[in-house]
């Protein structure tokens, strides 16, 4: 479901991105245009080196485009300062990483609470958010477990709980099932479908896995820095 630019949550306008390595300029994204509506669930596919993660980083406010505009939640990310971007990310973006990236010295509860410490919530409110997020991912009984005491699937679920604890506008997931077995991967994909359909979260997911991509409402392909087949509808998609 492509959105009109006026009501789109994510607007990517003619974006290019180049990296410099010594005297070499490496073009990664070449004139990308993309819109994403609220409550959409987009799968971003493409071979390694096609620029998927780079595009995801731009949309998540982790990087700035070389040219063009990236407007997310009404904010032009290319012109925001580093500190403003950090604050913006804490309010609008929930991250899910391939390798979960939980803080190993913190318990599941503390990991989920971590982004909430940047908000003005009271301790009690934080506690409610953390417990609710862990309830959604089905880990209410693992509050005091450290990441090393959890399975890969459970770690990813804690990571998802951390991503949704602040009730972000947009969830970005980079290969969320890439390090999981089929069963755990399936559980994570089901969880993400629930986040989209039951909790109306907007999700962008980078994946290599066609099966994972098929759970999204929309699939776009990137090849050599260019979007191709942007209107592909996943097999078995419900929307």
């Amino acid at each position: 479901m492509a959105a009109n630019q006026s009501d789109a949550l994510v607007v990517v306008n003619n974006v290019t991105k180049e990296f410099r390595r010594d005297s070499f300029v490496i073009p990664v994204l070449l004139g990308i245009n993309l819109q994403l509506a609220r409550q959409d669930y987009l799968a971003l596919m493409g071979p390694s080196g096609s620029g998927k993660s780079t595009l995801l980083n731009l949309i998540a406010g982790l990087d700035r485009p070389t040219s063009g505009e990236v407007i997310v939640c009404g904010t032009n990310l290319g012109v925001s300062s580093e500190s403003k971007l950090a604050r913006w990310r804490s309010q609008h973006i929930g991250f899910i990483f391939q390798l979960y990236n939980l803080i190993p010295v913190l318990t599941a509860y503390e990991n989920v609470e971590l982004p909430l410490t940047l908000t003005r919530l009271t301790r009690r409110q934080r506690d409610e958010h953390v417990r609710a997020a862990l309830e959604v991912v089905g880990l209410s009984d693992r509050l005091d477990h450290y990441p090393r005491q959890l399975s890969g699937g459970q770690e990813q679920r804690v990571s998802i709980a951390r991503a949704i604890a602040t009730d972000p506008t947009l969830i970005v997931a980079d290969e969320p099932t890439g390090d999981l077995d089929a069963k755990s991967g399936g559980e994570i994909l089901e969880l993400m479908r629930r986040l989209n359909e039951e909790f109306h979260k907007t999700i962008i997911m980078v994946t290599h896995d066609p099966n994972a991509a098929s759970r999204a409402k929309r699939i776009v392909h990137l090849e050599k820095g260019v979007l191709v087949n942007t209107n592909a509808t996943p097999v078995g998609a419900t929307a």
Binding site: E82, A86, R89, S90, Q91, I93, N101, L114, P115, R162
Partner: peptide, 12 residues
């Protein structure tokens, strides 16, 4: 880990 902290909103 530090990159993750910064990604989820912790400032410099």
């Amino acid at each position: 880990e530090v990159a993750v902290l910064k990604a989820i909103g912790f400032s410099r």
